[in-house]
Simulated scan of single mutants.
Amino acid sequence: MWWVKRVEQAPVPELTMDAYQHLTEQNEMKEHCRIEVLQEDRWHRIKSLDFTVKPDTPSAWNHNPAERPKPTHTMPADMDVFDTDINF
Rank of each mutant, 00 (worst) to 15 (best):
44 H>F: 13
64 N>G: 00
9 Q>D: 09
30 K>E: 04
27 N>F: 00
67 E>L: 14
33 C>T: 10
31 E>R: 14
45 R>Q: 10
31 E>Q: 12
7 V>I: 09
9 Q>M: 12
30 K>S: 06
60 A>I: 12
71 P>E: 03
38 L>W: 03
27 N>A: 01
54 K>R: 15
15 L>M: 07
51 F>Y: 15
38 L>M: 07
60 A>R: 11
25 E>T: 02
46 I>D: 01
12 V>L: 14
33 C>F: 04
24 T>M: 05
34 R>S: 07
8 E>H: 14
5 K>N: 14
68 R>P: 01
61 W>C: 03
25 E>N: 07
11 P>V: 04
26 Q>M: 09
44 H>N: 08
54 K>T: 13
25 E>M: 04
64 N>C: 11
14 E>L: 12
8 E>M: 15
28 E>D: 15
58 P>F: 01
19 A>G: 09
11 P>R: 12
42 R>N: 15
30 K>C: 09
47 K>W: 02
26 Q>A: 05
53 V>H: 05
49 L>D: 00
45 R>M: 11
20 Y>Q: 05
65 P>T: 06
47 K>Q: 07
25 E>C: 01
24 T>I: 08
41 D>Y: 10
8 E>C: 13
49 L>F: 15
22 H>W: 13
27 N>M: 05
46 I>Y: 04
40 E>K: 10
26 Q>G: 00
59 S>G: 08
28 E>Q: 08
18 D>K: 02
8 E>R: 15
69 P>W: 06
10 A>R: 15
20 Y>T: 02
55 P>K: 13
60 A>T: 05
30 K>Q: 09
38 L>K: 10
43 W>F: 14
69 P>T: 02
38 L>I: 04
18 D>S: 01
36 E>G: 00
63 H>E: 13
63 H>I: 09
29 M>H: 07
59 S>Y: 08
15 L>H: 03
21 Q>C: 08
51 F>G: 06
14 E>W: 08
40 E>V: 13
56 D>M: 15
59 S>I: 06
64 N>K: 05
6 R>P: 00
23 L>N: 00
29 M>T: 03
52 T>R: 15
14 E>K: 09
68 R>T: 00
58 P>I: 01
15 L>E: 08
